[in-house]
Amino acid sequence: MKTLITALLLVGICATTSFAGIRTLGRGATLTFDPAGIPPAYKKNFEIMRVRCVKCHTLERAVVAIQTGVAPISGQPFDRGATRAYGIKMLRKPDSNMSKQEVKSVVELMNYLLDQAAR
């Protein structure tokens, strides 16, 4: 029994926090999507997001936006229109170094995560 309780506590502390269908890891600036919760079809997309987006900001922004449906800085609704707009914004930022294909992949991933969060 003790082992079971200890295991449950450990899981409670370390395991993913979940929010309406998406799994995350960490908190605050280290908050990120749990790679284990990303389906194989989107693994490559997530890898692009994990490498490219954190060059300028933490993934916490993306997680909060998708979990709450509100972009954390602008306070504007974060929906499919917003994922596309942010994608274009990042494409055009001279320092993002992201290609169209990469932006498209990240937008697709965010749309998938939005759908999951809405469940």
């Binding site: 954390p72 602008s74 306070g75 504007q76």
Partner: peptide, 24 residues
């Protein structure tokens, strides 16, 4: 370009008033 939009918008963040902001 976004900074110019912010300045031209009287230092108000462009877009609709912040709704149920995540950090509210």
């Amino acid at each position: 370009e976004f900074g110019e939009a912010f300045m031209k918008n009287s230092y108000v963040w462009p877009g609709k008033p912040k709704a149920a902001a995540a950090n509210s």
